[in-house]
Amino acid sequence: MPANEALSVADALHRRRSVRAFSDRPVDRAVLARIFADAQRAPSGGNLQPWQVTVVTGARWERVKAAVAARIAMGRDGQQPEYDIYPRGLTDPWESRRFGVGEALYASLGIPREDKPGRLARFMENYRGFGAPVMLFLHCSRIMGPPQWADMGMWLQSVMLLLVEHGLASCPQECWAMYGATIRHELELGDDQILFTGLAIGHADAAAPVNQWPVPRAELDEVIDWQGF
């Protein structure tokens, strides 16, 4: 979508998707600064604005990827999880949704379930940001609780929709929280910070099949209970 094309909030919501293949086209820092300035209008309880953000590109981004790759090579011993990305003991309908979207993603790439090496290789693209030239790391003080984490989510959604408005794409990636200590070290963050998520930012590779498959959403009657109408 051209950056100057007018669109509604609903348009941006429908056009936004988690892009998993980016071009190497650079992103203008001035455009990102404008997006972040607008995103500061996101709501937060008590106006705390708990989000803290580190944005990397170039050599700095390459160093982060290399440091995390070294931890991944250590296997489970290399993991440094900040929190449980998914609830333990996840049940339906949530487990089915999670499984279903994963299978649809691999199907779009032509990687069957029995191709374990192929799936692992594709999974590792998470830790390369799917080729995105910019990575945003969203973190906050450890004193913050669930309400402030919800505030960070609202800020993040605001950024993702504004990126669409400016002709850019993104992919939120909580997977980086599996190596929180390494990322804090590379970004020179204090241990008082906890990493929430990464956000890959760039220009989508529109021709990539992984960016074209339809991502399902639950029907309204699964999530909305109308009362008093």
Rank of each mutant, 00 (worst) to 15 (best):
G118I: 00
P81D: 10
K65Y: 05
P133L: 07
A132S: 12
T57E: 09
V64H: 09
F99P: 08
E125A: 01
M124K: 08
R113I: 14
F36N: 14
D28L: 13
V53T: 12
L32Y: 06
F123Y: 06
Q49T: 12
Q49E: 15
P26Q: 01
Y86I: 09
Q40W: 00
P112Y: 01
Q80V: 14
W61K: 14
R122W: 08
S141Y: 01
Y86A: 11
W94A: 06
P81M: 11
V31G: 05
P117D: 04
G100F: 03
K116I: 15
D115C: 06
A132G: 08
V134N: 01
V31W: 02
F99A: 14
A70E: 07
D28H: 10
D38Q: 13
E82C: 08
F99W: 07
A67H: 11
R88A: 13
F130D: 04
G58Q: 10
P87K: 04
A121M: 03
D115M: 01
A37P: 04
L109D: 05
G89P: 10
W94M: 04
I85R: 15
I85L: 13
A70K: 12
P26W: 02
L120Q: 15
R29Q: 04
R113S: 15
D92A: 13
R76E: 09
G129T: 08
P50N: 13
V31I: 14
F123N: 04
L120M: 13
R128E: 10
Q49W: 03
P26N: 02
R119S: 01
K65W: 06
G100W: 00
K65H: 05
E125T: 05
P81W: 03
P43L: 12
S141V: 03
E62L: 03
R60H: 13
V101F: 09
P93W: 06
A67C: 03
F99S: 13
Y127P: 05
I111T: 09
Q80L: 08
D38L: 12
A73L: 03
K65D: 00
V101E: 11
L90R: 10
V53C: 10
R122G: 04
A42H: 04
R63F: 02
H139V: 04
D92Y: 06
P26T: 07
D92T: 02
A104W: 02
A59Q: 11
E103I: 14
Y106I: 05
G45E: 06
V27C: 15
Y83Q: 08
W94G: 01
L136R: 05
R41D: 14
W94S: 04
Y127R: 05
A59S: 11
F130E: 08
Q79E: 14
C140M: 09
Q80W: 02
L105H: 06
L136F: 03
Q40E: 05
Q49P: 06
V64W: 02
V27L: 07
F123P: 00
R119F: 00
L109F: 01
Q49N: 09
T91V: 11
A33C: 11
A66E: 14
G110K: 07
R34G: 13
V27N: 12
